[in-house]
Amino acid sequence: MKRFLSSMIDGRGFDIGLVSLPLAFLLTLSGLPLLYNIVMSFQEVDMFSLGSFWRPFVGLKNYRDLFAQPETWPILANTATFVAASIAGQFLVGFGLALFFWTSFPGASWLRGLFLVSWVMPGLVVGAIWNWILSGDFGVLNFILRETGLIDGNIFWRSDPGFSLWAVIIANIWLGTSFNMILLSVGLSAIPRDLYEASELDGANVWQRFWTITLPMMRSSIGAIMALGLIFTLQQFDLFAAITSGGPNNASNVTQYWAWDLSFRQYDFAKGATISVIMIAFVMVASVVYVRSTRHEVRG
């Protein structure tokens, strides 16, 4: 007992104690629900068995049922479109802005900080604002497109099946761009100046410097931001709730919104859990990419 106490005060016991507290926290609040979710996807769950843990085991039935539903594949495709377009948009605009602020004109860092405001905003508030911007009758986006002659009639962004997913994508790009920009700015500022001077003396012009120095030196930052982007876009729920609610007729529905809809509106907890498990697989892949890319940072 005495040895245990002294090791708690100044030995390995103290280290283990420090680590075990957050680990216990993680396990209870994230690990167990995750496992419970996976278990649930192999069980038959209804309103009456909701309160018990030991429910009939049904094997892969939930998965088979899910993929037999006609809306499953379109929703998975929507999710892929949403993730790819959001990440691409956030990354390209974010990288562009990061490069822009990197030129360090007067007030650059101040203005760059201001951009973070969009990331701090709650998704529901962002959704509400974009509802006005995207509004079919009096929205400012339609006004701009119409006045510049890009469209003839109004686009009903939120209720037109061809546009509703893109309405959420546009809002999501706006929401995530500043986070991309900040992370990429950090990556850019970590590149030593003298590398550019050396390559300039070696005869490289601006484009060649970008392709041979900036991009390769940013590899780990880009890998990290892509992986985080995948995780964040798969988490994006508020915007769907605020802008389209997945409609019309699932035209803008994605897995994360659908999982919530199945579980908590249709009370089909088993299917909700099943679709979540499929998402876990994707996020795991992204996490591995993220961990690997931050580990393989290039250091001079």
Partner: peptide, 9 residues
């Protein structure tokens, strides 16, 4: 260069 400025990648 004093720092050599070798391309680390």
């Amino acid at each position: 260069f004093q720092s050599y400025a070798l391309y680390p990648h």
